[in-house]
Computed example of a mutant assay.
Amino acid sequence: MKKQTLLLIALLIFQNVFSQFFKDKDGVTKYDGYFTFYYNVNEDKIYLEIEKLNAEFLYVRSLSEGIGSNDIGLDRGQLGNGVVVYFKRAGNKILLIQPNQKYRALTSNDDERKSVQEAFAKSVLHGFVIKEQNKGKYLVDATDFFIRDAHGVANRLEQKKQGSYSLDKSRSAINLERTKAFPKNVEFDVLLTFKGKPKSYTIRSVTPDASSITVHQHHSFVELPDNQYQTRIYDARSGSYPMSYLDYATPVNQSIVKRFIYRHRLEKKDPSATVSEAKDPIIYYLDRGAPEPVRSALMEGARWWNQAFEAIGYKDAFQ
């Protein structure tokens, strides 16, 4: 009787969307957020609900727990590439596609934009088989996408002559403690174990068993901001680093290469004021594991940046 009651509750939870797929599955928890997803504790699987087709968002991967050697360079908190991606349906699959942003045509001419898009390759990062479709929403099993060596740990170990390693999925799993859903982003954390034969003292010195190396990898799907950001053209005298792309819609008498600086988006609450607080201040977070007196020194040093922002009319812009 108790089991039947639990099954009835589960059916009521999922009947509005994917009742057919989940009707025989116990241990499923739903997470509502920027992308809704479901975790099945009995299968250790993540099922992703996809509704936003052809809508770009940011995909970021990182190492939430690393190896611990500066020489190897796979450290805790290390960011991988952040890329713009989108989902697109193709038959019975949903493809995760990374468009080629190195080559563009910034024009209102659709044919011109399309010609440049078709001239250069894009990258399909993953193909998800559709498990169920209902009311414009698609359910896919995303477990294999998350439990993979997206950060390139095995390649890095080989490049640094630490040994030959490969991912052991039987000793890898979803880390539910750091897997969360929010309105503007969803976060997925996984424990990855690599098996192999160590060839260096370095890897042996930082692992209990160098034939079995376990790290944590993090994946983030993040909503893109609005298009009101104001770019600033790169000037070699600025001391900044440029980002660049080629714009094939550029007039023939101008350079096709476009260079801009990396900078924060900072706007005054009161544009008419000589000094104003920022609408959205720049906020950095200090590692909670930083001990004193290092912690206080880091905080004090970072706050010095406010002197520079005050000089250009911002109060408490850096926090």
Rank of each mutant, 00 (worst) to 15 (best):
Ser296Asn: 10
Asp189His: 01
His216Ile: 01
Ile174Glu: 02
Asp168Pro: 07
Leu96Tyr: 03
Pro251Met: 03
Ile50Leu: 01
Ser244Val: 05
Thr107Ala: 03
Asp168Ala: 13
Tyr165Pro: 06
Asn92Cys: 03
Glu43Asn: 11
Ser276Ala: 12
Tyr103Asn: 13
Tyr241His: 07
Lys2Gln: 11
His264Trp: 15
Pro99Glu: 00
Ile213Ser: 04
Pro99Asn: 00
Ala154Gly: 06
Ser108Trp: 08
Leu8Thr: 11
Leu157Val: 06
Gln20Ile: 11
Arg288Val: 08
Ile282Arg: 07
Thr29Gln: 08
Arg148Gln: 11
Lys135Val: 07
Ile312Phe: 13
Tyr138Gly: 02
Glu310Phe: 15
Asp287Val: 09
Glu267Pro: 00
His126Glu: 12
Lys122Pro: 00
Val252Asn: 11
Val116Lys: 01
Tyr31Met: 10
Asn92Gly: 08
Lys137Glu: 09
Phe145Asp: 02
Glu177Ala: 13
Pro242Asp: 04
Pro183Ile: 10
Gln319Lys: 15
Ala150Tyr: 10
Tyr38Arg: 04
Arg232Tyr: 09
Lys161Ala: 12
Asp235Trp: 00
Pro281Ala: 06
Gln78Glu: 13
Leu58Asp: 02
Asp144Pro: 07
Gln319Asp: 08
Asn227Ser: 14
Tyr103Leu: 07
Asn92Ile: 05
Ile147Tyr: 08
Asp280Met: 13
Tyr31Gln: 07
Gly313Trp: 05
Asn227Ile: 04
Leu53Glu: 03
Val252Gln: 13
Arg237Gln: 13
Ser64Glu: 09
Ile67Ser: 10
Leu192Asp: 01
Phe188Pro: 00
Arg288Gln: 14
Gln101Gly: 13
Ser64Met: 03
Gly301Val: 10
Tyr59Asn: 05
Gln162Val: 04
Ala249Trp: 09
His126Pro: 00
Phe22Val: 02
Ser255Ile: 05
Asn70Leu: 15
Arg265Trp: 08
Lys268Val: 07
Tyr241Asp: 10
Glu177Phe: 09
